[in-house]
Design a protein around this nucleic acid. Sequence first.
DNA 1: ATTGGAATGTCAACAACGCTGACTTAAAGT
DNA 2: ACTTTAAGTCAGCGTTGTTGACATTCCAAT
Lengths: 172, 172
Amino acid sequence: MSMADGPGTQAHVGEALLYLTDEQLRQGIEAMYFAYRAFTADPDRILQGLDYGRAHHRAVHFINIVPGTTVNNLLSILGVTKQSLNRVLRTLIEDGLVESRVGRADKRERHLFLTEAGKELEHRLSDAQRARMRAAYRQVGPEAVAGFRKVLEAMMDPEMRRHYSGLREVRG
Amino acid sequence: MSMADGPGTQAHVGEALLYLTDEQLRQGIEAMYFAYRAFTADPDRILQGLDYGRAHHRAVHFINIVPGTTVNNLLSILGVTKQSLNRVLRTLIEDGLVESRVGRADKRERHLFLTEAGKELEHRLSDAQRARMRAAYRQVGPEAVAGFRKVLEAMMDPEMRRHYSGLREVRG
DNA sequence: ATTGGAATGTCAACAACGCTGACTTAAAGT
DNA sequence: ACTTTAAGTCAGCGTTGTTGACATTCCAAT
């Protein structure tokens, strides 16, 4: 199976697997590329000029989802180094968007929360992103959306899937 | 509609629109984030150590799709500045992965082609990416895949959709 | 109580890849 | 002739990722 397959291996099998053609897969790959660019364009536009970037958006997003998360936990969700995250967190804390509270049980840990200002930025960013996704969802209907979610979940690494809130019981 | 809507606007409308809840949209957003990370992980792994990055991958990908494309056309597909693209193209040409031919009709233009070595790298990269997508497609079946593609296409900016090969008649 | 390790933070350096601005060359259009 | 277009180049900068080294603080185990 996998990479040893020549191009178009599935093309001769029959109509039932036509969606597994190399050409079909390539179109899916391009669709991911262009859609992801659109997906990030709106928040990026808001962030630019605030001295913030995509990394700040991600931090604010996940602190909002899991308030009180530790730095280490955030690291494993975001999959970056602590130095990289620290640079982002520092500016967010300095600017009063994120609060870092020393842990009670373990004082080494820092628990992260959004301030009111932080929540406001998070809302602006996610509103923009949701607007685009809502428009797309409306266009295509519930069945397509269900398929969309299924494929994305199947594409994730198991490591990442653990962090994916769609499969968590949290808040639901 | 759009950003003026309060959170959860759609939640009270009924079961038919439950997939448009802010919470459902947020899960879609996160799914995009985690899936895209997985989606780029395999090629990134190959590229790292070759002195290449994601930008090289994209250039090689689209030169493969539209052989003989001009630099300007590639710029509009990729949505970057010519300086940014030039840095990438220069190394690819120096390393013998891309060939740049002066245009016949318009000698200002350079037409870009993959060399054999370039085609080989393109194949390695797309094989890795296709393997992941094929596995996901197999797991979820054709209907989910169709929905996946529909949502992605609906999410694209019209500008980007023009470049999306899934809607082109080229090669098909 | 001292030691070992975990969690966090900081400093420095570097790479990839976006960006702007300025400028050149060559060729095409008018 | 003049302007515009395509491409390339140089210089500089910003964001965000990376390593490596090191300090601090604190828990936990010997």
